[in-house]
Amino acid sequence: MHARGILAATAAVWLVAPQAATTAGGGLNPMIALHEQGAPVFGITHAAIAAGRQRPSPPGAAPVEAPPPLPLPSLMSAAEETAAYRRADFTYTNYSSAQADRFMGFVGALLRAGASVRTHPILAKVPILHTDQALAVSRIHEQLNLGHAGVMLQEVESPEEVRTALAAMRFRAQGGTRPEDGVGLAAAYWGVSEEEYRRRAQPWPLVKDGELVLWAIVESREGIARVREIAAVPGLTVIVVGAGTLRGVYSTTAADGSRVLDRPAFDAGVAAIASACREFKVACSHPANTAAEVEALTKQGFSVFTMQTRNDAAFAAIAAGRAKAGR
């Protein structure tokens, strides 16, 4: 079904959502309550909503004919699968403007499947801010208008980037740069009126009663060099170790063409990020995909984990992490 068709089909749900949600009281974004309690936070990538390609043959294998694209998943099927799983504290997406219509349809389908920001907060990366500030700020506005519960900044290298993002998350009437219009879908997913949405859609903990979170991914030498300045910005919720990118940053190419990781330098970079998190009392995140990884990272002081796969190992990791935390 085309995204616009699903949006039209969910109009009735949107109209009753504000009354249904506001009677429950309390905060809307469950991640914030967990941060306030010092409890671990677990997220997982959402069910696929776009067509993909099958995994290619491994390096060195005999060449084969390119596999055909995987079929386009049904938005409703993907939404029902996502909504049915309620053990994660947030849903991570690979959003892009090119699939905006389809993603709007997915949010509408999530509503029809019984999901909301209370049960399935949505997070996604935005373009690198210091590469193209106008594009990044525009994407922040776009993604928040689609109901996202926060913003993930890529490759953060300065405190100014964090401040710019915080301003982009706040409406103009609140001193920010976000336009007041276009919030209908976000308000529907949050289950509040547009007026109430504008009041609550502010960054926490900068605004005590805010419901939006801001993550800064540090994944460069420049970012690590200034990580204490980044962590010190009021309003930053989470600092993420961009482990995959950092492994490339701290690797060199050997004579045989293989990549060699400078493990001491990589470990020192990760330690610097973790130290800044502790010093400025900002939650620290690291990607994880197995229960063993979650356990090891927890011992190192990490408390926010994104499962970058959606498989049995990831589901087991969340279950084990929640059990360990008594959740």
Rank of each mutant, 00 (worst) to 15 (best):
V218F: 08
Y85W: 13
G182Q: 03
H120E: 04
Q300T: 02
Q143K: 14
F171W: 07
E157C: 13
E279K: 13
H35L: 02
P287T: 00
G147L: 07
H141A: 14
Q202L: 09
A167W: 07
A39Y: 03
S158V: 10
A231Q: 04
E36C: 01
I224M: 09
V13W: 12
I230S: 07
V240F: 11
C284V: 05
A83N: 06
L246E: 03
A313Y: 00
P71F: 05
F302K: 00
L185V: 10
A11I: 06
A50G: 07
P264R: 14
V294I: 09
V233H: 05
A254Q: 03
G105T: 02
R327C: 05
A88S: 01
H141I: 13
V207D: 07
A272Y: 12
A313I: 08
S96A: 14
T177Q: 10
A313T: 11
R118W: 01
A168V: 11
V207M: 01
A134Q: 14
T177G: 06
M31C: 07
A136F: 06
L111E: 13
H46Q: 04
A100G: 10
A24W: 05
T245Y: 02
L206I: 05
V304S: 06
V192H: 10
N145S: 15
E195G: 06
A100C: 06
A187H: 05
H148F: 15
A98W: 12
V238N: 00
P179L: 02
C277L: 09
F315T: 09
E293P: 00
I44A: 03
V107K: 10
T119M: 02
F305D: 04
T93F: 12
A283Q: 04
M1Q: 09
Y250T: 04
A232C: 03
R198E: 06
V137N: 14
E219V: 03
V207N: 03
R263A: 03
K299N: 08
A8H: 05
V137W: 10
R178Q: 13
I230N: 09
A78N: 12
D209E: 09
L144K: 05
G248F: 05
Q143S: 11
A24M: 13
G147P: 04
G25K: 00
P68L: 04
N289A: 04
P63L: 04
R163N: 12
T252Q: 00
H286V: 15
T131D: 15
A83L: 08
L72M: 14
A8D: 05
A100W: 05
G248W: 08
G326P: 04
P67Q: 01
V162D: 10
Y95W: 14
W14S: 12
V13A: 11
G248D: 00
G176T: 14
H286W: 14
G235R: 00
F305W: 06
G176E: 12
T10N: 06
V260T: 12
R87G: 00
L297R: 02
Y85L: 00
K299P: 08
G60Q: 01
T164G: 15
I239V: 08
A165S: 11
A109W: 09
D181M: 15
